[in-house]
Design a protein around this nucleic acid. Structure first.
Lengths: 350, 350
DNA sequence: ATGGGTTGTGCAAACGATTGAAATTTTTAA
DNA sequence: TTAAAAATTTCAATCGTTTGCACAACCCAT
C-alpha cells in the first residue's frame, strides 16, 4: 500500500528551521508570531498539504467534535427526518453525528450510551425508549460533564434541555378542525398512558371536545400498545361495529390511521363523507394515499436542528445543568380525509 | 459542575506502587506479568471504575473504531434500512457509525467525505450521489490507507469492494411474474440511463420480455428524471391515454408506483384486473396501500450488514486494494396489485 | 559459585499538537 | 550607550497509553 506518512508539525519545523511551537502558532496566526513567519509557515503547509492530526488534537483538547444521537427506531419516517436535520446542522457547525438505535429496548439503549460515552462523543442527543424511566445511563454522561439534550420522547427525571413538539396543541387543533368540518362523534385511537406524547395528544383531544361542548365517550377512546397498522384496523372495526359508531377517528399516528383507512375502504365506508380520518406526524405516506390523509406535521427536521444547536451551545458553555424546554409548533396539514372539497393544500392554523 | 477527574493508569500505578507499564500490561493480562500482580491491578481498576481514555488509546494506536457512512438521502426507506443494518452490525463488532448525507449533490458528498476523513474514521461506506463519477474524494481515503466499501449506487471507477443488489435478476423475476399472471402488454417506468441500478432493471425487464416472446415497444418505456411520485402519475396518464395502453406497469421504485396507483384509482381503472402494477424496493407503504403493491425486496438491512462486515474485514487486514463484488439476491413480494386472488403472503421465487 | 536461562518489572521514548513560561532578539527611550 | 520594554521565538512539560528494551531477581545445571 501507498499509505504515505503524513506530514507533521515536526516536519515543517525541521524543514523551515524553526521550532515546533512556532510552527503551531504560526498556523493559527497567533499574535505573538511575526507576519513573515506566519506567511512562511502557511505557504509551506499549503504547498505540502499539511493537515493537523485530528486524533492528536482531540486527545490534547479532550474533545472530538462528534455528537451521539440515539433514537428508538431508525427506519421510521419521523425519526429519520429528525436525524436528517441533526446531521445537516451538525455538519454546518463542524460536528459529526454518531447514530445508534435502541429498538425501544432499555438494554440496547444503555449499551448504545456506553459505546458512545466510551468513544468520547462531546455530547448526546436522545429520544428515549418506551422502557426508559430513570435514565441512570444518561446521568453517566452528565457526571462526566458531557451535556445531553432530549427530544421527542423524553423523561422528566433528567435535568437536561428538551426539544419537544407541542403535542397538546397539535392535537387540539386537529380535533378542532374536525369539529369545524362538521364531525360531532369523534373517536380517538391513542397510545400508551405512560408515554408522554400519547398523553398530551389525548389531553388535547379531550380539551377540544370539552371546549366545543361535545360529549366525551370513553368507549370512543381506544389504546394502542404497539402503534401498529393492525391495531388501527382492529380498533376501527370495533368502533364501527359498536352500537354508537363515531363519525370521525383521530389517530395517534399516521401508521395507525392507515389501518383505519384500510378497514373503512374494505367496508366501502366513504371517507370523509361517512367517517373523517385524522392522523398525526405527517408521514410521507399521508400525502400518497387516496384520499390524502389529514395530519399534524411535527417539523422533525427542525427538531433535529434545534436539538443540535442547543447541544452545541451547552458544549461551548460547559453548561450541563440546564433544563430549558424548547417547544416546537405543529402544523395542521389538511387533506381529503377530513374535507369533502378536493382541497389538499397545506393549511396552517395559528 | 461535578466533572470528576478521571482515573488514569498513572493513578493506579502510584496507588499500587508499581510502574505505569506494569499496570497497563496487567490490565491486558500480558503473559510477562505475574498472576498476583494481574489480580491486584484488575481488582483495583474494577473497584475504582477505571476506564481507559479512548482518546489517548486511539491517538496512540492511530484508529478510532468509527466508520463513516454516506448516503444520498437519509429520509428514504431503503437507505434508512441499510443504515439500520450497518449500525447494528457495527455495534456488534465494537464500531460506531458516523452518518452523513449528500442530497445527491457532488459538492455535499465531497464535503462529507472530507469531514469524515478529518475526523479520522477507520473506513468509509458510501452509496454515491447521481453526480459522482470519478470519485477523487474517495481516492483520498484509499491514499491514506483507509478502506472504502461502496454499496447500492456504485461507480466502477473506484477499486473498492461493492455490495449491490442483483437488480437485473430482481427485475427479470418481477416481469416474469407479471407474464405468469397473464399480463402481456407490460410497460416500464425506468430511471436515468446513467444510473447503473436503473439500467440493470431496464435490462432485466427487456430480457424477460424477450425470453417470453413478448414485444418490446419503446413507447412503453418511460424515463424518470427525479424518481418522484408525480412522474409515476404523469407517465401513467401518458401510457393509459395512448393508442395502445399497456395492461401492466413495472416501476423503477415503489414511490413511482404510488403515482401510478393514484392515477389508476382516480380513473377507476381496476387493479389488477385491468392493469397490474409492480414496484421495486418494497417500501413500508407497499404493504399499506390497497391493494397491496407487489414489489421486489432489496434486503437493505442485509446490505448494511454485509457492507460493514466487509469494511471491518478490510480494516483488519490492512487491505485496501480489493474490488470484490458482493451481490445480494432479491425477493419478489407478491401482493394484490398483480394478482386477482386476495393472496398477500410473501412469496419467494428462487 | 558461576554462567545461562527464566520470569517479572521498570525506564523511557514514542504518538502529534498545544501552551505557559523562559529565553532570545529587536526596538524604544532616556 | 544602555537599561527597559516590546516583539519573537524556543523550551519543555503535558495529555494517557503503549511498547521495545534493559535490568533485576530467581532458579537450575554445571
Amino acid at each position: 500500500m501507498t499509505e504515505k506518512r503524513k506530514l507533521t508539525l515536526k516536519d515543517i519545523a525541521r524543514e523551515l528551521g524553526i521550532s515546533i511551537s512556532t510552527a503551531s502558532r504560526a498556523l493559527k496566526e497567533h499574535p505573538d508570531i511575526a507576519e513573515d513567519t506566519i506567511r512562511l509557515v502557511k505557504a509551506y503547509a499549503e504547498k505540502h498539504h499539511y493537515v493537523p492530526n485530528t486524533l492528536a488534537v482531540n486527545f490534547r483538547k479532550n474533545r472530538t467534535f462528534n455528537l451521539g444521537l440515539i433514537v428508538p427506531e431508525l427506519v421510521h419516517h419521523f425519526f429519520s427526518t429528525v436525524i436528517s436535520g441533526a446531521i445537516d446542522t451538525a455538519k454546518k457547525n463542524g460536528y459529526n453525528i454518531l447514530v445508534s438505535q435502541s429498538n425501544d429496548i432499555l438494554a440496547d439503549e444503555v449499551m448504545a450510551c456506553r459505546t458512545m460515552l466510551a468513544s468520547s462523543v462531546d455530547g448526546l442527543l436522545i429520544s428515549i425508549s418506551n422502557e426508559t424511566v430513570e435514565g441512570v445511563h444518561l446521568k453517566e454522561f452528565l457526571e462526566e460533564g458531557k451535556p445531553v439534550v432530549q427530544f421527542d420522547k423524553i423523561t422528566d427525571h433528567l435535568n437536561t434541555p428538551k426539544v419537544i413538539v407541542d403535542d397538546f396543541n397539535g392535537s387540539y387543533m386537529a380535533v378542532k378542525h374536525l369539529i369545524g368540518q362538521g364531525f360531532r362523534k369523534i373517536a380517538h385511537i391513542r397510545g400508551r398512558t405512560e408515554v408522554k406524547n400519547a398523553s398530551e395528544r389525548a389531553m388535547g383531544y379531550k380539551q377540544a371536545l370539552l371546549d366545543h361542548g361535545l360529549e366525551l365517550r370513553e368507549e370512543w377512546v381506544k389504546g394502542c400498545k404497539l402503534i401498529h397498522e393492525q391495531e388501527g384496523y382492529d380498533f376501527c372495526k370495533e368502533l364501527m361495529e359498536s352500537k354508537n359508531p363515531p363519525d370521525a377517528i383521530f389517530c395517534i399516528t399516521d401508521l395507525v390511521a392507515m389501518g383505519v383507512l384500510k378497514y373503512l375502504k374494505e367496508k366501502s365506508i366513504q371517507i370523509p363523507e361517512q367517517v373523517g380520518v385524522m392522523g398525526f406526524s405527517n408521514w410521507k405516506l399521508a400525502e400518497i394515499v387516496n384520499p390524502g390523509l389529514s395530519s399534524v406535521d411535527q417539523h422533525g427536521y427542525e427538531m433535529g436542528q434545534k436539538a443540535v444547536l442547543k447541544l452545541i451551545d451547552l458544549i461551548k458553555n460547559h453548561d450541563v445543568e440546564n433544563d430549558e424546554i424548547i417547544e416546537l409548533k405543529t402544523n395542521l396539514i389538511i387533506r381529503g380525509s377530513t374535507t369533502s372539497t378536493k382541497n389538499s393544500d397545506k393549511v396552517t392554523l395559528q
